[in-house]
Design a protein around this nucleic acid. Structure first.
Ligand SMILES: [Mn+2]
Ligand SMILES: [Mn+2]
Ligand SMILES: [Mn+2]
Ligand SMILES: [Mn+2]
Lengths: 215, 215
DNA sequence: TAAAAAATTTAGACAAGTCTAAATTTTAAT
DNA sequence: ATTAAAATTTAGACTTGTCTAAATTTTTTA
């Protein structure tokens, strides 16, 4: 149906569309580790296939057809990540690259059966919502810990950086999905924070506070 | 490491090597649904990478390195087929094409964990042996039902045609792996056979008798 | 609002993998 | 041992996806 490259472009545009109406060539290039020239070529092709809306120099957005494909890839990615963690006992920092390959297995029957096999999980190991077989899911934006006021409590619900190094850091400090934390203090100088977790009190940098998401 | 195309060529050469020492360009082309010219190009490339032994016009064979890759692809293919049938409840005639995609998921850690998750199965849904994580397995050639003498009994242990149409035919007549059959009669005119299964007596054509394997 | 900077597109090239048609080599048949 | 047929390889072209360098457009800045 669509090539692996096309699927990856659609997925990238979808993820980038979370913040902005329209997505720029350079944003896509940065996310996919390609060059802007390559992105221009691909946007032309995807526009021909009516999977993206694209006007030269004006950025791109997904058409409904393109969005549908993007969501189906994301569904597959997250279900495979869940499988790898829950059934094969991988850690949450180990599964992303494997899922990047597995999300391109084409059969939707396969992914629907996998979904059933696992009991229709709602969220992947990183707290991200899993679209159902119709592509429906709530994708509400979570707030970073950085926005929490002193003395307020909240529950860790996601991450905006999925890199192994960050996930390992969180794991080490037991800052995992579902844990409740309380903000003790914010150091104004560098915006770092002292937080009380269920397990201990720790000092997190501004970067960590920005990439750790809460409800 | 190796491209998808390279992996498919290596796997084809491996399968074809079962019957002959060296494999011809046309045999590979037929199996892969490509043209002989494409095969010549690829054999040159694989010879450069020292994955096949290749002398122009003389056919090809796998080097130890090429064989190792081929076996690892076959291991993945068969483990995924087992997963699809045993965990996701697909039928044996539905899984081959999905496994053709899944066998190219690169992680060996993933496939080793999948193997463990399923309890180290020895054979795939079609009776083919599954190589262990070191690539070791017994691949002894099974005899077709066609070679069984009248009145002899045997156990169905494999198939040499994996097409859905053939597998569905076998399923319909309960000629599945593990079933015992007894040859009642052979019709000399067309080499068809009357066989007694655990369930009923049926008349199978020469083609069926050639593609159904027994121990 | 005109020049400078940044972003984007176009032009031209390349690698992988495939194809058709033509040339070459091997094998089979007289 | 020639010739005919079959198998295989080479030549040249095409597609997808990528890149660098140059040209163009948009956005910033002063
Ligand atoms: Mn991921
Ligand atoms: Mn995830
Ligand atoms: Mn198969
Ligand atoms: Mn099989």
């Amino acid at each position: 149906m669509n090539t692996l490259a096309e699927e990856n472009y659609l997925k990238s545009i979808y993820h980038l569309s979370f913040d902005a109406e329209t997505v720029s060539t350079n944003q896509i290039a940065a996310l996919l580790n390609t060059k802007a020239a390559s992105v221009s070529d691909m946007l032309k092709k995807l526009a021909d296939k009516e999977l993206v809306n694209y006007a030269k120099y004006q950025g791109a957005s997904l058409t409904p057809a393109g969005k549908k494909i993007a969501v189906s890839i994301i569904r597959k990615h997250r279900l495979w990540e869940y499988f790898l963690v829950e059934k094969l006992n991988f850690k949450w920092d180990e599964v992303h690259d494997m899922a990047e390959e597995m999300e391109h297995i084409s059969s939707t029957e396969l992914i629907d059966r996998l979904d059933k096999f696992m009991g229709y999980p709602r969220r992947d190991p990183h707290g991200d919502p899993i679209p159902d077989s119709n592509g429906n899911f709530k994708n509400h934006k979570l707030a970073p810990v950085a926005t929490v006021k002193v003395n307020a409590s909240c529950v860790i619900s996601g991450v905006s950086d999925h890199s192994p190094i960050f996930l390992q850091y969180l794991e080490k400090h037991k800052l995992t999905i579902g844990k409740t934390i309380n903000v003790i203090d914010v150091i104004e100088y560098d915006n770092s924070m002292i937080i009380q977790t269920e397990d201990n009190k720790i000092h997190i940098s501004r970067d960590v506070a920005n990439n750790l998401l809460i409800i």
